[in-house]
Design a protein around this nucleic acid. Structure first.
Lengths: 206, 206
DNA sequence: GGGTCATCCTACGCGCGGGTAACCAGGTCA
DNA sequence: TGACCTGGTTACCCGCGCGTAGGATGACCC
């Protein structure tokens, strides 16, 4: 069913770093399936084929474990976005690539995007901080391009950037959930067209 | 500080319906401030100036209380969106009004939008259901207009609708959090311009 | 005044789950 | 061969917070 590719014959000894990676992988499965609160440390340990204290030898607590995972994927998303914008200097293709980054992120690595886009635990400061960092930095990069291309003020460009990120994020999640009704390429191109028509040569007033 | 306008001199007896409304109001405060999980039934009761069993005479459990509140605000959001689209037949103004609906919703009634847009508890089926209903119905209404106006297929129009809703939602939340840097009217007009440029006369292919 | 009904209180049961104490096993090196 | 280090285990503690049992209090009617 939903078994990790990692072997787990409850009894194999692993070197520290290998075990750590495996624990992170198990934790990701459980957190993604159940969310933070419904996830039990017992289950994470069990899923890794190991007992609970082992978990606590690698991570001081549940929240820290979660944050480690969250950091990983926030960095991933930001990197994808940055790379997309750096992949070309043609702004139309930049839009296409950036939107594609969101669709790729959402369809990648075992639904890990849920940690970033659907986290319960937003009320805890360190988590909120990381999630907002994702939005802020992605939008910041985009708003840079917008400001160069149009005459918008910084505040306006930021708001537009945030709007575009929101569009990409929400549509990507929706596309994933309605699996199959539209192929990925078609979906990204559709959204890219919407975004590009909206943003290209954006008028200062109008 | 953050006290309800309702009086709460711990000892006043209230008729059933009045008490119920007051409990809902107290619960909203606490759920919005802390999220579902960090919210304690004890605190909700205390905030209402009443003891816990009273709460349980009105609602069978914590989750049902939360759902009652959630329903209220999901309905509110959907109604705002529907009214916005029905307020005119000019599609450009429709876009403006619909975006405005999101900004109004977000800035209204004590940050209650957090229940709909930032709920921890999405993993619980009845909650997820209601949150998705909001997205689905809002996007559905918009996609109707899109299909009439452009030659898009139903699937494409739905994806576009979801994207626009996401754009509105996320930008509205961002605008609220960066309080003051842009006036509300300017922000909605900015986003409406982005959306309208993107969607108006959307080409079947391109 | 006394029944009775609705409203509200104090005080407790209890399960769940994060975190820990104390102990075992096997490889390596002097 | 025995000290020792690394990696692992079982079994437990304990606090928090939802939900409830059982009792008080006051309004209203006869």
């Amino acid at each position: 069913m939903t078994t990790t590719p990692d072997a787990k014959p409850r009894g194999t000894r692993l070197p520290r770093m290998a075990r750590r990676r495996q624990l992170l992988s198990a934790a990701q499965e459980v957190f993604v399936e159940n969310g933070y609160h419904a996830a039990a440390m017992d289950e994470i340990a069990e899923r890794a084929g190991v007992s609970k204290p082992v978990l606590y030898q690698h991570f001081p607590g549940k929240q820290e474990l979660y944050l480690a995972l969250l950091d990983l994927h926030v960095d991933d998303m930001i990197t994808r976005c940055r790379d997309a914008l750096a992949s070309t200097t043609d702004n139309k293709q930049r839009v296409q690539a950036a939107i594609g980054a969101f669709f790729d992120f959402v369809s990648g690595q075992g639904e890990a995007f849920r940690l970033v886009f659907e986290s319960d635990l937003r009320n805890v400061a360190p988590v909120r901080q990381r999630i907002e960092r994702n939005l802020r930095e992605s939008a910041e990069m985009i708003s840079q391009v917008i400001q160069e291309d149009t005459g918008c003020s910084s505040d306006e460009a930021h708001l537009l950037g945030v709007g575009l990120v929101g569009m990409a994020e929400v549509s990507a999640r929706y596309w994933l959930s309605s699996n199959g009704s539209i192929p990925k390429d078609a979906a990204t191109q559709l959204m890219a067209r919407l975004a590009w028509r909206g943003i290209s040569g954006f008028p200062r007033t109008g």
